[in-house]
Design a protein around this nucleic acid. Structure first.
Length: 870
RNA sequence: GCCGGUGUGGCGGAACGGUAGACGCAGCGGAUUCAAAAUCCGCCGAUGGUAACAUCGUGAGAGUUCGAUUCUCUCCACCGGCACCA
C-alpha cells in the first residue's frame, strides 16, 4: 500500500492529460457540444480563493459534460487592460505592458497545478494586439452600422491634477492623489447606442429561463422602462417653456415647484448672466458623478426667481428651482416636484419651506363626508384654495403606495375618485393628450454606454481627427492601431496625449496631416465579446462563421453576482451588435444560455493609516494576531469581498503546497452552497485532506482484497451506490455541489463499513472515483488505474443509476398530531391510503391524544406524512 | 438614497409547503498506544428530568395553512450593484 502523495499523483496525471490533449476542444459532427465558460480573470498576478472556487465550479461542469459524451469547450484568457497596471507603473516605475504580461505568466503558473480541464491552446489576453486589433475592427463595423455616436458626458474632474478620475479614485468627493474637491465636468465622448436596443434587451430577458430570476429582475430594473407624460410649463414671463417628463402625472395637482438640473440649458443660460446662479451651480456640481453621491448627498436647491404657470390653471404660479438631485441624463432634465408623494421632493420642500399638497390618501383615511364620495364620478376640479400646506413636523414621510394599490383621490382632474396609481396615470395621460398640453411617452432609465477613457492602458479607439474631414475612421488594413511602448507615468493624465509622435498620422480620407484619437476604450468593451472570440481565438477576423455557429452559445456561464448588471448587459448588447455587423449568427444574440452567479469569497480586512492619514491595507499572511511583523496593531474591518485594493486575499498556493490541488478543489466546493458567499477558513482544508486520504486508503484496501472471497451485503452496497449516483448526478446538474459532496461523504462511510465481496466493493470504489472525478480528478484517475479501469476516468462514460435499485419497499411515515411530530410508523411503500389511516389511528401516541374521541381531520400524504388534527 | 440578495446549533451549512439541524468542522467520552500523534467507535440545539419524555427553537413581529426554515406583509441587521474598479 502506498501513502497518498498528491504532489506525485497530480503532476503525473496533468502530464498525461496534456500529452493526450484530453481537454483540447474539437469540432466533430454527430456529437453534441457543450461550452462552459467562467468569467476570465483580471491578471493581478496572484491567484486567490475566489478564482479557485469559480474555476473549480466550472471544471466540475466541464468534466461532467465530457464524461456524458459532449465535445466540451472550456477556455481561459485574461481581462488584461485596466487601471491597476497604470497604478503599478506610477507607484513603482515599471511599464503596464511588462507588469501585465509578467502577472499573466505568474498567475498561469499558479493555475496549472490545479488541474482544471482547460483548453490552453485558445488562451489570449485582451491586451494582445491580435485581440484588440479585432476589437478595433468591430468598432469600425459598429460605427458604420450606426451603433456608435459622439456626445457629451459628465466626468469626475480633478482641478489640481487636471485629469479625469475614475469613480474609484474619488474618495468622499475628493481626488485620491491631490485631495482636491472633485467637480463634475462635461467632455465629448464616444458612446455605444445601447439605449436604442433598450426594448429588445428588456424583451430578451423573458427567454433567459436558465438565468437567476434576481439577475433578470436587476437588469429589468436597470433598463427601467416606464410610461409617463411629457409636458411643458409655460414661463410666466412669456420667455418660452420648460419641458418636463414625469412618471407620476397623476400627482400634478400636488405640484409645488418645478426643478431643473444644474446642467439644464436654462440653468446654464441663467448662470452666464448671474454670478449668484453661477456660484450656486458650481456648488452643486461639486462631488463625484455616481448616482450614490448625487442621490444620497445633501439636497441643494437655488430659487431662480422665475415662475411657470400650472398647465391646468394659469393663475397658479410654480417657482422654478435648480436642484442638484435632478439628472440631466434622465428624461428632460427637469421635473415638477410633488412632495406629498415623493420622498426626495418632500425632503427638498421641507428644507426650503415649499408647500406640501396631498392629491390622494389611503382608502382607510376619512376625508370629508363619505356620503359625498361617488366612486364612479369623474371629476375636473381646480381649487387652488384647497391647497393643504402641512406645517413642518407633522410628517416627514411621503405617502408612496405601490401603483397597484387603490387610493382615494382628493385633489385630481382625471379618472375615478377611487383608483390605483396606475389607473390614474393612464387616465391622466389620456386626459392630457386630449386636452393637448401633454404627450404620453415611454422612457428608459438605461443610458447610452460611454466608452471613452482618458487613459493609456486600453484599446485605442481607431479614429483620426482631420482638420478638414473631421472625425474619420481608421482604415481596416491599418489595424491594429497599436499602443506605443515609450510612455511615462511620472505626471498625471493620459500619456498618449503628450506622446511626441504617436498622435501624428495622415487622414485616411484625404491624406492630410491629422491626429489620432488619444482616448482608449472602457475595459468593459474587452470583456463584452471575448466569449465569441474563444470560438476562433487566432483568426484574422473577429470571429469565424462556422466556429461561431458550432460553439455558440455559451451553454453555462459562471461568474460573480457583482457582474449581474453591467458586464452581462453589455455582453448582451455586443452579441446583438455583432449579429448586426455579421460577426455572429442570429441564434447567438443572447450569448449565455444559462448563467450561474457564484457567491464571493470573503475575508476580514486589515488596515492601518500612513503619516498622511491615508488608508494602507495588509495581506492576511502579513498579519498575525492582529499585528504586523513590526508589532503595529491593525484595524480589523469585518469580512468583505476579497479584493486586490483591500488586500484581503488568501494565497491558495500555500494550500496546494501542503495538501495538493484535489484537497483545495474539494474544500472550496464542499464548504458552502455555490451561490452564496463563503468566508475563507483554514480549518476546512484539513478535513478535506483527511477525507481524500481516507478514500485513497480505502481504495488500497479493496485492491488487496481476496478476489474470490464472497461477502455479505453486496446488494445493500450496490443499492447505496445507485442512490449515490442518482443524488450526485442531480447535485452536479443543479449546482448543488456541497450537497453532492455530502452524499459522497456518506457513501464513503458506507463503503468503509461494508462487508461485501470483492466484485461489489471494486465496482463501488470505481464508481466513487467517477463520482468524485469532477472535483478531485487526479485522485480519481489514480484509483481508476489501480483497479484496471479502461482508458482515462476523464473520458470514461458517466455512471448511470439503475431505476430498479432506487425503489424502496418500505417507508417510515412520521405521524403528526396538530402539526407536531409525535410518532412514526413503518409501512409498505404501496400500502393503500385507507390502511395507512387505520394504522395511524391505532398508533399509541394517536390513541393517547384522541383519548377516546374522533379526530377532527386526518391528512395522509402518501409516502410522506400523516397528520392527525384533534 | 435607489435596485437586488442573505439571515437556521459553538462554526460552515441540509431540508419538492410535510420528522428542522443531513454532511463536515470544533468539542466531549471511549478503543488502540508505555505515552503521544494518526486512526477507529459513540455523544453532541436550548431548558427541565436519573430516564422515558415534555416544553421551546430557523433575525423580530404579524398573516395564510391540517402543517411554514420554505408562501405573504411590516421591521431589523448584514452583503452586492449604482453606469470611469474589474
Amino acid at each position: 500500500m502506498s501513502t497518498y502523495d498528491p504532489a506525485q499523483i497530480e503532476a503525473k496525471w496533468q502530464n498525461t492529460w496534456k500529452q493526450e490533449g484530453t481537454f483540447t476542444a474539437t469540432r466533430t459532427e454527430g456529437k453534441p457540444k457543450y461550452y462552459v465558460l467562467e468569467m476570465f480573470p483580471y491578471p493581478s498576478g496572484k491567484l486567490h480563493m475566489g478564482h479557485v472556487r469559480n474555476y473549480s465550479m466550472g471544471d466540475v461542469i466541464a468534466r461532467y459534460k465530457l464524461a456524458t459524451g459532449h465535445n466540451v469547450l472550456h477556455p481561459m484568457g485574461w481581462d488584461a487592460f485596466g487601471m491597476p497596471a497604470e497604478n503599478a507603473a506610477m507607484a513603482s516605475g515599471g511599464h503596464p505592458k511588462d507588469w501585465t504580461y509578467g502577472n499573466i505568466a505568474e498567475m498561469k503558473a499558479q493555475m496549472k497545478p490545479l488541474g482544471w480541464s482547460l483548453d490552453w491552446t485558445r488562451e489570449f489576453a485582451t491586451c494582445d494586439p491580435e485581440y484588440y486589433g479585432q476589437q478595433q475592427a468591430l468598432f469600425l463595423d459598429m460605427l458604420d452600422a450606426g451603433l456608435i455616436t459622439r456626445k457629451n458626458a459628465t466626468v469626475n474632474w480633478d482641478p489640481v491634477d487636471m485629469t479625469v478620475l475614475a469613480n474609484e479614485q474619488v474618495i468622499d468627493g475628493k481626488g485620491w492623489r491631490s485631495g482636491a474637491e472633485v467637480e463634475r465636468r462635461e467632455l465629448t465622448q464616444w458612446f455605444f447606442k445601447i439605449s436604442d436596443m433598450a426594448d429588445d434587451l428588456l424583451a430578451g430577458l423573458d427567454g433567459l429561463d436558465d438565468w437567476p430570476a434576481k439577475v433578470r429582475l436587476m437588469q429589468s430594473n436597470w433598463i427601467g422602462k416606464s410610461r409617463g407624460l411629457q409636458m411643458a410649463f409655460k414661463r410666466s414671463d412669456g420667455a418660452g417653456e420648460i419641458e418636463v417628463y414625469t412618471t407620476r402625472p397623476d400627482t400634478l395637482m400636488g405640484a409645488s415647484f418645478v426643478g431643473i438640473s444644474p446642467d439644464h440649458p436654462l440653468a446654464k443660460q441663467l448662470e452666464s448672466s448671474d454670478p449668484k446662479v453661477a456660484a450656486a451651480c458650481a456648488e452643486m456640481r461639486k462631488g463625484g458623478t455616481t448616482a450614490e453621491a448625487i442621490e444620497a448627498g445633501e439636497k441643494l436647491g437655488f430659487d431662480t426667481g422665475l415662475t411657470v404657470d400650472h398647465p391646468l390653471d394659469p393663475n397658479w404660479k410654480l417657482p422654478v428651482w435648480i436642484a442638484n438631485f435632478i439628472l440631466m441624463d434622465y428624461g428632460t432634465g427637469a421635473i415638477f416636484g410633488c412632495p406629498a408623494h415623493d420622498q426626495r421632493d418632500l425632503d427638498f420642500c421641507r428644507k426650503y419651506g415649499l408647500p406640501v399638497i396631498d392629491t390622494f390618501v389611503a382608502l382607510s383615511e376619512r376625508v370629508g363626508d363619505p356620503a359625498d364620495a361617488d366612486p364612479n364620478a369623474s371629476k375636473f376640479s381646480i381649487q387652488p384654495g384647497d391647497l393643504r400646506t402641512v406645517p413642518e413636523g407633522v410628517t416627514d414621510t411621503a405617502f408612496v403606495p405601490p401603483k397597484t394599490e387603490p387610493v382615494k383621490w382628493i385633489n385630481h382632474f382625471a379618472g375615478l375618485d377611487v383608483a390605483t396609481g396606475q389607473e390614474a396615470i393612464d387616465a391622466t395621460i389620456d386626459f392630457a393628450e386630449k386636452a393637448g398640453w401633454g404627450k404620453g411617452r415611454t422612457q428608459f432609465r438605461l443610458r447610452d454606454w460611454g466608452l471613452s477613457r482618458q487613459r493609456y492602458w486600453g484599446c485605442p479607439i481607431p479614429v483620426v481627427h482631420c482638420p478638414d474631414c473631421g472625425v474619420v475612421p481608421e482604415k481596416k488594413e491599418n489595424l491594429p492601431v497599436e499602443l506605443p511602448y515609450d510612455v511615462s507615468f511620472d505626471i498625471p493624465g493620459n500619456p498618449l496625449d503628450r506622446h511626441p509622435t504617436w498622435r501624428d498620422c495622415s487622414c485616411p480620407k484625404c491624406g492630410a496631416a491629422a491626429q489620432r484619437e488619444t482616448d482608449t476604450m472602457d475595459t468593459f468593451v474587452d470583456s463584452s465579446w471575448y466569449y465569441a472570440r474563444f470560438t476562433a481565438p487566432h483568426a484574422d477576423t473577429p470571429t469565424v462563421a462556422e466556429d461561431a455557429a458550432y460553439w455558440m452559445n455559451v451553454d453555462q456561464y459562471i461568474g460573480g453576482i457583482e457582474h449581474a448588471i453591467l458586464h452581462l448587459l453589455y455582453s448582451r448588447f455586443f452579441a446583438r451588435a455583432m449579429h448586426k455587423t455579421g460577426h455572429l449568427p442570429a441564434s447567438a444574440i443572447e450569448p449565455f444560455d444559462a448563467l450561474f452567479t457564484q457567491g464571493m469569497v470573503t475575508h476580514e480586512i486589515y488596515k492601518t493609516t500612513d503619516d498622511k492619514g491615508r488608508a494602507v491595507y495588509h495581506l492576511p499572511e502579513d498579519v498575525t494576531d492582529g499585528k504586523l511583523a513590526d508589532g503595529t496593531e491593525v484595524e480589523i474591518i469585518p469580512s468583505a469581498k476579497m479584493s486586490k485594493s483591500k488586500k484581503n486575499v488568501v494565497d491558495p498556493v500555500n494550500i496546494i503546497a501542503s495538501f495538493g490541488a484535489d484537497t483545495a478543489r474539494w474544500f472550496v466546493l464542499s464548504d458552502s452552497p455555490p451561490e452564496r458567499d463563503v468566508e475563507w477558513t483554514a480549518s476546512g482544508a484539513e478535513a478535506a485532506f483527511k477525507h481524500i486520504s481516507r478514500v485513497w486508503t480505502l481504495s488500497n484496501r479493496i485492491a488487496t482484497m481476496d478476489q474470490s472471497a464472497a461477502g455479505t451485503g453486496d446488494q445493500d452496497l450496490l443499492k447505496t451506490m445507485h442512490k449515490t449516483i442518482h443524488d450526485v448526478t442531480m447535485g452536479i446538474e443543479s449546482f448543488g455541489f456541497n450537497a453532492a459532496i455530502a452524499k459522497l461523504y456518506a457513501f464513503t462511510g458506507a463503503l468503509q463499513k461494508s462487508k461485501a465481496g470483492y466484485a461489489a466493493q471494486r465496482e463501488a470504489v470505481m464508481t466513487l472515483a467517477q463520482l468524485m472525478s469532477p472535483m478531485t480528478p487526479h485522485l480519481a484517475e489514480e484509483i481508476w488505474a489501480q483497479h484496471g479501469g479502461e482508458g482515462l476516468i476523464a473520458t470514461a462514460a458517466w455512471p448511470k443509476a439503475d431505476p430498479a435499485m432506487l425503489v424502496e419497499d418500505t417507508v417510515t411515515l412520521p405521524i403528526q398530531i396538530n402539526g407536531k411530530r409525535r410518532s412514526e410508523i413503518t409501512v409498505a411503500a404501496d400500502l393503500p391510503k385507507a390502511e395507512v389511516e387505520a394504522l395511524a389511528l391505532a398508533d399509541k401516541a394517536v390513541v393517547a391524544a384522541l383519548d377516546g374521541g374522533t379526530p377532527k381531520k386526518l391528512i395522509v400524504v402518501p409516502g410522506r406524512i400523516v397528520n392527525v388534527v384533534v
